[in-house]
């Protein structure tokens, strides 16, 4: 066993400090150490995207990063995006447009989609499919995920216009 290291990072706005072995993957830090269980473990091989979180403005598969690498960074998980009393427009849209069935991929899908819409506020279907290519869903066939993201984009753009 190697020496444990001091890690300090911010998750959903809250400072966290702990000692971890260097080999501890971030997804385990989130789920087992910090009890933040929104990000899921799907394939654990950097393919499925169920573990997607946002780290310093980048969508990252947290199964492919060590917690020590994230030292000093700011992380947002699905828990930091919305909650049952205050859903994010993407969460509302996924619910209304049947963007999920079993729901296992959904936290990763929505976390990735927040970043996609930040970078491309008015995406075409092709841009959505390309931008969501790192997230796999085995239920929906993706059509309703595309519809949900389109609906959320329209909602968010309308809200932004109304605010201006």
């Amino acid at each position: 066993m190697s020496k444990k290291m001091h890690v300090k990072l911010k998750v959903n706005g809250k400072e966290e400090e702990f000692l971890a072995e260097p080999r501890e993957l971030l997804i385990y830090t989130l789920r087992e150490r910090l009890n933040i269980t929104g990000p899921h473990i799907g394939c654990e091989t950097s393919h499925c995207g169920a573990c997607t979180v946002t780290i310093d403005g980048k969508s990252v598969k947290s199964c492919t990063m060590f917690a020590v690498q994230a030292e000093g960074s700011e992380i947002t998980t699905i828990e930091g995006i919305g909650n049952p009393d205050d859903l994010h427009p993407l969460q509302t849209a996924f619910k209304e447009h049947h963007g999920l069935q079993c729901g296992y991929c959904t936290p990763g899908m929505i976390t990735r989609a927040t970043k996609l819409l930040e970078e491309t506020p008015n995406p075409t279907e092709e841009e959505i499919r390309f931008g969501m290519a790192g997230n796999l869903c085995r239920c929906t066939g993706y059509q309703n995920i595309v519809k949900s993201i389109q609906a959320a984009a329209a909602e968010m753009n309308a809200a932004k216009e109304a605010a201006e």
């Binding site: 950097s46 995207g49 997607t52 980048k58 969508s59 990252v60 598969k61 492919t64 990063m65 990735r112 996609l116 390309f130 931008g131 969501m132 290519a133 790192g134």
Partner: peptide
């Protein structure tokens, strides 16, 4: 190359 998440890293 790969997918969006992988390309960020």
């Amino acid at each position: 190359i790969a997918d969006p998440q992988v390309r960020y890293m």
